[in-house]
Every structure is written in structure tokens, then in C-alpha cells.
């Protein structure tokens, strides 16, 4: 049911002239994709610095809250550019993206990483006055930072793997895989 709705929406996006134009424009598409990847250095780069501090592996002489508060703005600027360029990339290739197992995995991980970030941020705010100046933060903070690094790395990884067509709908796969990827037409052939 959800698979049908998603696919119908993607097919509707696919009929847009702008979607085709962006997809077929060699330079524009490459620039949008490069922007998406290189802005990651800003978003993910700042995230790495913050998380390494929270793990007690870097910037140990600087208060944890200073690192997280000062780097939050550039990180969120990077995040905003990522979201915009990412939406453009989906808009350019809507059907294949919707039917990509990697993209689906990326969205699930993205939500998980987002929830972790929200929980983590509140705990970080509570740091001032307690463990803020400790070179190695308390265990729950280190766990949160480790989870954050792992989850966002997996988001990046699944994004990168979208380029591979191993599990695209045109491949022959078990029914379960078609269902995961939302290959509605291929699933119909099983019935």
C-alpha cells in the first residue's frame, strides 16, 4: 500500500519538465551532486570534531560545551545545504531513488540519527557546571557520541551505495527484496 503511494508520487514527480531537465543536464546535475558531497565535509566534519570531543579523543583541553556550541552553527549551515541539494537530487531521479533499498535504508538511519542527536543535545546542554571541563566525558555521553558517529557514518555509507545497482528493480531478486525496495511492478509478477 505504502509502496504504491510512494511509487505513484515518484512517477508523478518524474513527469515534471524540471525534473527531466535537471537529470539530463550533465553539468547542473554534477554540480548539485558535488555540492551535496562536498558540503558533507562541513556538516559531517563538524560533527566528527564535536563527537571526538564528547568521546574524549580530541580537544580534551577545551570545555565540551564550547566545542559543541561554537561548531553547531557551521554544522547546521552544512545540514541545510545537504537537505536542499539532497531534495534536488531526489527530484532529478525520483523513481529509481524511491525504489532504492539504499535510499530507504538511508532515510530510516537518518531518522534514527536525528532522534539520537536530539536526545544527545539535551544532555550536552546539561553539561555546563558539571563535567564540562573533564577531558573525558561521562560514559553516557561517550555512548551517545559513539552512536552519533556510527549512525551518521551509516547514513553517508548508504548514500554512497545508492550509486550501485545491485538491488535495483531490474535485477532478479526474491519477493522480499522487491517488497523492501518497493518494486511494485515486479511484485505483481509473482502473483
Amino acid at each position: 500500500m505504502l509502496n504504491e503511494i510512494l511509487l505513484r508520487f515518484a512517477e508523478w514527480l518524474d513527469t515534471h519538465a524540471w525534473s527531466t531537465a535537471l537529470h539530463e543536464s550533465y553539468y547542473m546535475y554534477s554540480w548539485v551532486e558535488s555540492t551535496h558531497v562536498l558540503t558533507l565535509a562541513l556538516f559531517f566534519g563538524m560533527l566528527v570534531v564535536i563527537d571526538l570531543r564528547m568521546l574524549g579523543w580530541a580537544f580534551t583541553s577545551v570545555p565540551a560545551s564550547t566545542i559543541s556550541r561554537r561548531l553547531e552553527t557551521p554544522m547546521m549551515i552544512g545540514f541545510a545545504i545537504m537537505v536542499v541539494s539532497g531534495l534536488l537530487l531526489v527530484y532529478a531521479v525520483p523513481v529509481r531513488t524511491t525504489n532504492s533499498i539504499w535510499f530507504r535504508m538511508k532515510m530510516v538511519l537518518f531518522v534514527a540519527a536525528g532522534i539520537n542527536a536530539l536526545l544527545f543535545r539535551n544532555k550536552m546542554k546539561a553539561a555546563v557546571g558539571s563535567w564540562d571541563k573533564d577531558p573525558i566525558p561521562p560514559k553516557r555521553m561517550r555512548n551517545g557520541a559513539g552512536a552519533s558517529l556510527a549512525l551518521w557514518s551509516c547514513v553517508v555509507a548508504s548514500g554512497r551505495l545508492m550509486a550501485y545497482d545491485w538491488y535495483d528493480c531490474h535485477q532478479s531478486m526474491p519477493y522480499f527484496m522487491y517488497w523492501l525496495a518497493g518494486c511494485v511492478h515486479e511484485m505483481a509478477e509473482f502473483e
Binding site: L40, A41, G45, M46, V48, V49, V156
Partner: peptide, 13 residues
């Protein structure tokens, strides 16, 4: 890619 992003983050910071 992940190492590239880490390197980029360190250069930027």
C-alpha cells in the same frame, strides 16, 4: 569517503 570528510572537517576547523 568518511576519511575524506574527517580530513575536510579538520582542515575547515
Amino acid at each position: 569517503l568518511l576519511a575524506m570528510l574527517t580530513l575536510g572537517g579538520m582542515v575547515l576547523t
